[in-house]
């Protein structure tokens, strides 16, 4: 007989008092190799209005495609300084910004490679349980064969791929639309 799992509850409007002191908005710490990227965008609700003060957490592999976790058994280099966890808050205009490194490919089901991506979870007032999604990188040749992207209806895949901002090669824009037109794809597992 399994125990009943504890219900999720909203973070409410004041989550920043807890998360703000422990933000992790820049993963490019000394000792971590890889291509630096600045990921930014907005969180948007069903009215097209910005969602202020949403909390966004990200989880990713390093540039070699290795996770800083005991269940990653791959024989790949892992920098001692690399954690792979990001935590940022959207401001009152719904804008967030994360500085990180582009992860490498990681193993997927049946030995198929997964394209570089970040797992993203989103918390906000009005959300009774967090949303889980992924963000992929534009023009990456591995995207076409990614086993998770392939399960997403083709017309919605673009919601999971960040856009290059012309002015700066390292800058990527990715909006999180929780409802409505161009709604971001969210996953269940």
């Amino acid at each position: 007989m399994n125990e009943l799992t504890t219900a999720s509850q909203t973070v409410g409007p004041f989550v920043s008092i807890s998360f703000a002191p422990s933000l992790a908005g820049d993963l490019t710490v000394q000792g971590v190799s890889g291509k630096r990227v600045v990921l930014h965008g907005r969180v948007i609700d069903g009215d097209g209005a910005p969602v202020g003060h949403a909390a966004i957490e990200t989880w990713q592999a390093n540039a070699h495609g290795k996770y800083a976790h005991p269940e990653d058994f791959q024989e790949k280099p892992l920098e001692r300084e690399f954690r792979g966890f990001g935590r940022v808050m959207a401001d009152e205009r719904g804008a967030y910004r994360l500085v990180t490194i582009e992860p490498g490919c990681t193993p997927g089901p049946g030995g198929v490679l997964q394209a570089p991506h970040l797992v993203v979870v989103i918390f906000m007032r009005g959300l009774l349980k967090h949303l889980t999604t992924r963000v992929y990188f534009p023009d990456d040749t591995h995207n076409a064969e990614d086993p998770v992207l392939k399960l997403v209806p083709e017309e919605r895949r673009a919601t999971l791929i960040a856009r290059r901002v012309a002015t700066d090669a390292n800058e990527l824009e990715w909006n999180i639309v929780v409802q409505g037109k161009d709604e971001t794809v969210f996953f269940e597992y």
Binding site: W59, Y67, A68, E71, D72, L128, V148, L151, F186, Y189
Partner: peptide
């Protein structure tokens, strides 16, 4: 859950996409 009013404009209306669990999700920050 409409009795909690803020959910009305923040709940996704598209179905969630069921995907396999991979190394990316069974791991997490330590």
């Amino acid at each position: 859950y409409p009795p909690y009013k803020s959910t009305v404009k923040r709940a996704p209306v598209q179905p969630l996409v069921l995907v396999p669990q991979t190394l990316s999700e069974i791991t997490g920050p330590v």
